[in-house]
Design a protein around this nucleic acid. Sequence first.
DNA 1: CGAAACGTCAACCAAATGGTTGAATAACGG
DNA 2: CCGTTATTCAACCATTTGGTTGACGTTTCG
Lengths: 113, 113
Amino acid sequence: MPLDTVFAALGDPTRRAILAMLLEDDMAVTDVADPFEMSLAAISKHLGVLTAAGLISQEKRGRVKWCKLEPDAMREASIWMQSFGQFEAVNLDDFERFLAAELQDDAPELSKG
Amino acid sequence: MPLDTVFAALGDPTRRAILAMLLEDDMAVTDVADPFEMSLAAISKHLGVLTAAGLISQEKRGRVKWCKLEPDAMREASIWMQSFGQFEAVNLDDFERFLAAELQDDAPELSKG
DNA sequence: CGAAACGTCAACCAAATGGTTGAATAACGG
DNA sequence: CCGTTATTCAACCATTTGGTTGACGTTTCG
């Protein structure tokens, strides 16, 4: 069941941090591991979990294995959550304002004040 | 970290099934357990996990403990996910700050529009 | 009162998870 | 070729997870 693996994968803060990093750019395994205070092997395992969940893909070029975010994998899970529609547009006003500010210029200091 | 517990809770199919049941109506623990082929104690544990994650609440009236869906708990997780699927352009740091601010003032009116 | 229903607790178990280390494999680069 | 870099594999370990059973406290009801 993809929902099982996707949600389980997202349940770990290290893996969410990895996804956040990959949001900015594709990365090699070693570079993904760099900011973390754990072994490369541990990160390699986390990447395996993310890959199994379909949240990222890995492609080997030469001796470097590139990790790439696969945002589509979250779609099903996201849709499942939204089916609990009761929780109503998560403050969509605030969210849209956030997005507008975000997409408008490069680095808005929105949390300021 | 709420995201940890929410995602981890959602990673189990039994617990997702329970949430789906509670979508229809509040239920007593025994009735929640009924359709499952596992012990009442096991379901009780699952309900504990869901409660710890804030995804449901439990209120005891008489000898019956009623379980109620708390859809708000999914908001943060849902927003987090949507940032990947649809809004790759957002700055994740800003986004985390937005989330923090958003959740700080206690579930701003989400009642339907 | 005494029995049954509701639910949790405690002890236990197997399997999965998240981490470690050290050796192994593969590809570059001098 | 040989050393170095990139990554995984294998074995191991501690902890958590998801389940079981049986005993236990409450509340309801005949």
